[in-house]
Simulated assay, not measured.
Amino acid sequence: MERSKQERRTRKRIGIMFLLLLLMMVAGIMGGAVKVSLHDFWNLFAGNEITAAGRIILYIRLPRMIGAVIAGMGLSVAGAIIQTILNNPLAGPNIIGVNSGAGFAVVLCSALLPKAYQILPFAAFGGAFLTVMFVYYLGKKTGASQMTLILAGVAIGSLLNGATDALYTFQEESLLASTSFRIGGLSGINTSVLTYAGAVVIISLILVLLFHNELEVLSLGEETARTLGLSVSAYRFLFLALAAALSGAAVSFAGLLGFVGLIIPHIARMLVGEESKYFISASAILGALFLLVCDYIARTWFAPYELPVGIILSFVGAPFFVWLLFHRRKRRQNA
């Protein structure tokens, strides 16, 4: 009976999150340096003649809103998976170098094939996957602690960032929007890039939710999972591949956005608990909502100027990370 009440409460919270996401999607389309009204919004989808405001919605605001949703979902669920698999709440795509691996692959692909936008999500997946597997391999082989695993990821991320900077130095003329990519931003997104990245994120999310029971078992620890008959190596490989696909798809068009995959899983965990199907769903919704809010702030608070959303994320994420370190220390002292 108590569990049934808890599930209803959790589902109600997820429903409220989803409603807030829908409202923020509308606000994201309407808000900006140029204001558009609900009437403009309605005219666009009612089949009436497209006005100047309609063109702003259709070609600028709508792709940007969809991009924020896709990137927010991808990065937050990738963070949730990585924290679960590595059993480390300090892990995240940007912290352990996964975003850096995806970013390096995107920059390398852009330098070699500057017009092949459709393969960027897959190049980013390859870079992210190789990075996360290498970090995990280092941790397993050295018998490293959770904190050492984080430090190894930071070191690998720094190495990859250096390699990315080297590519920029030698191929600057062939790399588009290099500064905004490194900071992370959602301006200038086009639907051709979103189509491929969105397909990767949606398919990966569906697979994660289909295998939520296996993720739940993995969260109990490797020894317990083996005792329960789960093929730990196979499912760990699957989930790390899905995390790489989610993170890589987001990085391929939004750049090196930080902290989404670290912050959002913690908030989702506090709101809906550890049960995987609710935890993953809440992470996806909150990730999209969080990035939409940050992008709205970046576009409206400093109008007529616009900040890259990556700057807003850094101002929010860095203090959160420091708080998390102190919070974990306090918990250890009280244990």
Rank of each mutant, 00 (worst) to 15 (best):
G198Q: 09
G127C: 09
T191W: 11
V201L: 02
F134G: 08
I183D: 04
S158V: 08
V208I: 15
V217A: 00
V132W: 04
L159G: 14
L176P: 10
I189P: 08
V201I: 13
F134Q: 07
T142M: 15
G184H: 06
H212Q: 12
Q118F: 10
G157D: 08
V217T: 14
G221I: 04
A128R: 05
L205I: 03
E172V: 02
M133C: 14
Q171N: 15
E172N: 13
N213A: 09
D165A: 11
S219G: 11
T195K: 12
A152C: 15
T169Q: 13
S192V: 14
L194I: 05
L210T: 09
G139S: 14
T195I: 12
E173F: 11
K141H: 14
V201M: 04
I150T: 15
N213C: 03
V135H: 01
S178N: 08
L194N: 07
A155I: 15
S204F: 05
N161A: 11
K141C: 03
L151S: 06
S174I: 10
F181I: 03
Y117W: 07
S180Q: 15
K141R: 15
S180D: 10
I202L: 15
K115W: 10
G127I: 05
V135M: 01
V135N: 05
N190Q: 11
G139Q: 15
E172G: 09
A128F: 01
T131R: 05
G153N: 07
G221F: 02
T191E: 12
V193D: 12
A152S: 15
T148Q: 15
P114M: 04
G143W: 12
E173N: 10
L215Q: 05
N190K: 10
T142K: 14
A124M: 03
S158D: 09
T224N: 11
G188L: 00
G188P: 03
K141I: 11
L194Y: 03
V200R: 06
E172M: 09
A163H: 01
V208G: 02
L218M: 06
T131A: 02
V201K: 02
G127P: 09
A199Q: 08
V135A: 04
G184Q: 08
D165P: 01
V154P: 05
V200Q: 01
V208N: 03
A197W: 01
V200W: 04
L220F: 10
T164I: 05
A155L: 14
E223V: 10
V200I: 11
A225C: 03
T142S: 14
V193N: 11
G185Y: 00
G185A: 13
G127R: 07
T131W: 02
S180F: 03
F122N: 09
